[in-house]
Design a protein around this nucleic acid. Structure first.
Length: 564
RNA sequence: UGGGGCGUCGUCAAGCGGUAAGACACAGGAUUUUGGUUCCUGCAUUCGGAGGUUCGAAUCCUCCCGCCCCAGCCA
């Protein structure tokens, strides 16, 4: 993928304006460098994708580079599995960091000496207050904080204590290092923020080598500086931290100071994008894993059948601004449909089969029809579909008492079997006990194979079908979304996210046309009138394929029914 | 409550003193052997509100209102 392709759909935004301005002033000698800095404590989700597209996209647009940096400064919850998934997902999305793969944990030694430098300059000190005391001393929104009694320890004592913290002489929480800034600052972030803490937790990369770890505010800006990042793009909630970011950089970095720019993170309707929530869904077994097709993770969406192109396009379409937003899920779905419509082969499938016997079709006869795989794209080829006396059609395609605008099969009506004959309703067979329609008897019009009825009568409805004896059984999973609903226990207007326990629906009784036997894992089809489905690449079994629904043709499964 | 941000169509989002782009959604219509696709058409006399400056304001000024973020030894 070259940069022009990536840029083709990227609109201008306020970040690019800032960059243009900076470049004009020759900040960083006109060079541009960004970075994507996830913490490896979970999988990437669609919100991260927005950041990936932004950071890599901008770098590409300006002929700069984007680093991948794992922001692993807190061993809690971090793991190699997450690092690997992050790298996978970025590549899958179509971006590449080349040889610029970095880890904040690789800077631990440098960061330690930066902290020493701060201490030597009298700009940081070892504080021996405990967590509760620090909170208390910090003050509140309205009340200024109080200076720690340890604030004026000598440089020598601080250096000595810090070295012994590193050496593991103290237990967790006994001391922290704090930047000496301003306990009266109206910005709480600036009230002598903690920059180092003692934490005896094995780090997935450095193991037990360190017992002290730098805090985000200290590590992030310096990592940016070390890597020569010019523009450090992050989300809005870090706006309060920018003064601290700048403060630390100013104390320790002479030239090539990075600049932080904030943008609004993505919120998607009906979708959980809080990492905390996603971790809980996985850990509590609500889903089968991070790549469960119900998850809004890149891995989940990939397995479900989303294409990288559609996600990139979505990120371009929603734009980048500083306003809190809630993007409607229909935008995302439109983007997949738009992409899939282009190249997804069409096929026929029956999700809830209703048996249909064509009474006037010769018993034992089988016709082999050749159908185009795509109505507008002959280059996508054809496939062969058998037609026989006994068929299955979709249960919804027959209505005993058809509502107003219903176009399909009903008593006394005709309907077109897609790509095949027009059939006429003759009679129905009901289950005596339940009253449910279990079988239909119809007659076909042999004249209608390749065109409309010669007598000029109009047949509006077109339905899909499969030959009962040839159809292959398959499983199809149709997912509901993760719902955001009013919290029953909360106050009015309070919302909580949860996964509808019914949201995974497996229909084992569905039947697919035989050509789908050759389906490749990960390949998406449009099951005509049912939507786009993707052969699950993880659970793939050729003899009984599992299809995930990627998106409905229209915006919801119930839409067609709603109209009737 | 102190500080930091943000308010343009149902939802995103352009606009940067010259008279409200675009996308999704929605509503009509045309073509269609997918209720798909495609194609037309409609959809903010108004930019959170009120004043003011100006020939002219979404854009500048003043005040007000609303929403979000910050009191982790998370990021």
């Amino acid at each position: 993928m070259n940069s022009t392709q990536l840029n083709s759909k990227i609109p201008s935004d306020f970040i690019r304006e800032i960059i243009d301005e900076d470049l004009k002033m020759e900040k960083g000698e006109g060079r541009l460098a960004t970075r994507f800095p996830p913490e490896p404590n979970g999988y990437l989700h669609i919100g991260h994708a927005k950041s990936v597209c932004l950071n890599f996209g901008i770098a590409a647009q300006y002929g700069g580079a984007c680093n991948l940096r794992l922001d692993d400064t807190d061993p809690q919850g971090e793991s190699l599995e997450y690092v690997e998934s992050i790298m996978d997902d970025i590549h899958w999305l179509g971006f590449d960091w080349g040889n610029r793969l970095y880890y904040a944990s690789d800077y631990f030694e440098k960061l330690y000496w930066f902290a020493c430098e701060l201490i030597t300059a009298g700009k940081a000190y070892v504080c021996s207050l405990n967590a509760d005391e620090i909170r208390e001393y910090r003050g509140t929104f309205t009340d200024p904080g109080r200076e720690s009694p340890y604030r004026n320890r000598s440089v020598e004592e601080n250096l000595d204590l810090f070295a012994r913290m590193r050496a593991g002489e103290f237990k967790d929480g006994a001391h922290v290092v704090r930047a000496k800034i301003d306990m009266n600052s109206p910005n709480i972030v600036m009230r002598d923020p903690v920059i180092y803490r003692i934490k005896r937790e094995p780090h997935y990369r450095t193991g037990g080598q360190w017992v002290i770890y730098p805090m985000y505010d200290f590590a992030h800006c310096l990592s940016d500086a070390i890597e020569g990042i010019t523009h450090s793009i992050c989300t809005l909630e870090f706006e309060n931290n920018r003064p601290l970011y700048d403060w630390i950089v100013e104390q320790l970095i002479e030239t090539g100071r990075p600049k932080q720019i904030e943008f609004a993170r993505l919120n998607l309707s009906y979708t959980v994008l809080s990492k905390r929530m996603l971790i809980a869904l996985v850990q509590n077994g609500y889903v089968k894993g991070w790549d469960d097709p119900r998850m809004p993770t890149v891995a989940g969406m990939r397995r479900r059948g989303y294409t990288p192109e559609s996600i990139r396009n979505f990120c371009a379409v929603i734009g980048v601004a500083k306003k809190d937003n809630l993007v409607d899920i229909s935008v995302l779905e439109h983007c997949v449909r738009e992409d899939l419509n282009e190249g997804a082969p069409r096929a026929m499938a029956v999700l809830r089969p209703l048996r249909v016997v064509i009474d006037n079709y010769p018993e034992g006869q089988v016709e082999e029809f050749e159908f185009a795989n795509h109505p507008q794209k002959p280059e996508l080829g054809t496939r062969t579909v058998p037609f026989a006396r006994v068929l299955y059609i979709e249960r919804d395609d027959f209505q005993e008492n058809p509502p107003g605008k219903y176009k399909r099969l009903a008593p006394g009506r005709e309907v077109r079997l897609r790509n095949a004959y027009v059939i006429r309703y003759e009679r129905m067979v009901k289950d005596e006990a339940t009253g449910e329609v279990v079988e239909l008897h119809c007659t076909y019009d042999a004249e209608t194979r390749n065109g409309p009825p010669p007598d000029g009568r109009k047949v509006k409805g077109v339905i899909h079908w499969v030959s009962a004896m040839h159809a292959i059984p398959a499983e199809i999973r149709i997912y509901d979304r993760l719902f955001r609903v009013p919290d029953p226990a909360g106050e009015e207007g309070q919302f909580t996210d949860y996964l509808n326990p019914e949201s995974l629906e497996i229909l084992t009784s569905c039947r697919l046309e035989p050509s789908l036997k050759e389906t490749a894992p990960g390949k998406a089809f449009q099951f005509e009138r049912l939507g786009y489905f993707c052969a699950d690449s993880k659970d793939f079994r050729p003899e009984r394929p599992v299809f995930n629904r990627v998106a409905a043709l229209r915006d919801s499964w119930g839409k067609i029914a709603d109209r009737e």
